[in-house]
Nucleic acid binder design. Sequence first.
RNA 1: CGGGGCGUAGCGCAGCCUGGUAGCGCACCACCUUGGGGUGGUGGUGGUCGGAGGUUCAAAUCCUCUCGCCCCGACCA
Length: 575
Amino acid sequence: MRISQFLLPTVRESPAAAEVISHHLMLRAGMVRRLAAGIYTWLPLGLRVLRKVERIIREEMDRTGAQEVLLPGVQPAELWEESHRWQHYGPELLRFRDRHEREFCLGPTHEEVITDLVRREIRSYKQLPANFYQIQTKFRDEVRPRFGIMRAREFLMKDAYSFHFDQASLQETYDRMYETYTRIFTRMGLRFRAVLADTGNIGGNLSHEFHVLAEAGEDAIAFCPTSGYAANVELAEALASADTPTPPNGAMQKVATPGSKSIAEVSDYLGVPPAKILKTIAVMVNSGQGEEFCLLLLRGDHDLNEAKARKRIGDFRFASDEEIEGHLSGRAGYIGPMNLQHTSPDMGIIADRSVACMSDFVCGANEPGYHLIGVNWGRDLPLPPHVDDLRKVVEGDPSPDGQGTLTIARGIEIGHIFQLGDKYSRTMKATCLDENGEAVTLIMGCYGIGVSRIVAAAIEQNHDERGIIWPGAIAPFQVALAPVNMQRSGRLGEVVERLYAELLAAGIEVLYYDRKERPGVMFNDLELVGIPHRLVPSERGLDNDTLEYQGRRDVHAQHINLDEAVPFIKARLAG
RNA sequence: CGGGGCGUAGCGCAGCCUGGUAGCGCACCACCUUGGGGUGGUGGUGGUCGGAGGUUCAAAUCCUCUCGCCCCGACCA
């Protein structure tokens, strides 16, 4: 491709709004342009990368025997009503009416459509198992799209849905998809990790996420280098400590802590480490028949894991200051589990496991402006009857599998596989006949890959101060042909044109920088765009029939013979 | 949705407080210059100052409404 005929609008500055490196670089390198919040146009360069990613996915999916389909982006409300997600999905589902006032939505995912297809078309166990996939634009009306392509509203996704007669068959396909994903991301040159994941709203039994390891990742993942255990922090269990509380050191006292509400403030004011302070979180639990006030107790240096809390107590929200004052004599910032037996004997209190091991700790006195110090379970107040795992694991926690300790890393979720079970097939009545002619409800798996997100994630993981460094497998071009001052030398021009033709003839994807620019501009452009290999023919190299080669990560260029340029590059690409 | 902020040329910004008819850098076009890491110069193209209404002799500037965008939080297969 001649750059003079290729829309490659590189820019020196990018919009101040870009928050993450991949967003900056994709704008600067002329890969994408924003059209509206979370909605992007892919320019020729970006699209080439996207297609490379797609192709790898398609090849590997086809290889596992999955069948490609293309499901509609616009979906009728009836299907979503059938699965009850029309009510449950929330405002993330973009809904609208057509001219006949019929309701539709833009598909954020396609479980309903595929289940509908399968229940109509698949009748016999002999047609199972089956795995259908598509590469489709999805739309999710995110509350706050951000990070450019990483978390857009409109994005490209590969989703696959498998249908089975029994769990063993599902497990087999699930395992195969796990291997396929590993192969796909390995081929793309990504550093990634598969982790156990929460099944979340989508439901089901077993789930793994695939994360690209990168600082900008929105998810925290916990893994154990010794045992190989890896899980999303949402899921990783914080084991109960074997420690027991140490005996009390002194009497409980009430102390004034004016203006100190947060753990950090109380810690500073009293000179007590956060681990010795009890964090009391007031929540309103939705019990089905109205809301119930409940306290969650954590150690001051720990964070609440909302996913765990939700599993333990059901759906909840944080209580407002007014609600706190309505249920306790304290005020937000000064609340604690003390003396509640008298006022609210039925109030739900759940303590995190680590809280049970605390002694001589600090907690709110349920009196504005005061905390209690030297508090001990048993002596000063009873240990709450409910003790459970409520917190997020932290670096150094014991691994849940009992071997070694956990390390925490940031990850970008690029793939997710689920064992869905019969959640959709049951509500949507997707059955087929077994050997005895009996209708059996199918069980399902689903498998997603964030195609467009991978492009951003790859950049997060592969860049330097000059720009992008594409892994070969997803680079928009393999080779940049970058002559120095070609316009000044007819002799050089001829050589370069011939070389370009030879590279093309050899089937190499080459970007030919034939624009009349100073070398500095050209080199900066090419490094920003991140093409892995660069050939630099020049007048002075021509004198001894050589040209320069430099890999995008190389510190120095090397001289190679003109005649050997094409075989040299071929060898590089093969290796 | 709650809190905060920003909309002035394609991009990055100044001007607004204290009204007087719009500017800088980059990019773009032409010519000259330079020629292995974003050369230097001259000239030029491009803006109903997000939109609507109001105040005023006069509004980018003051007021009201509105739209869009961004940040923090809540939310999130």
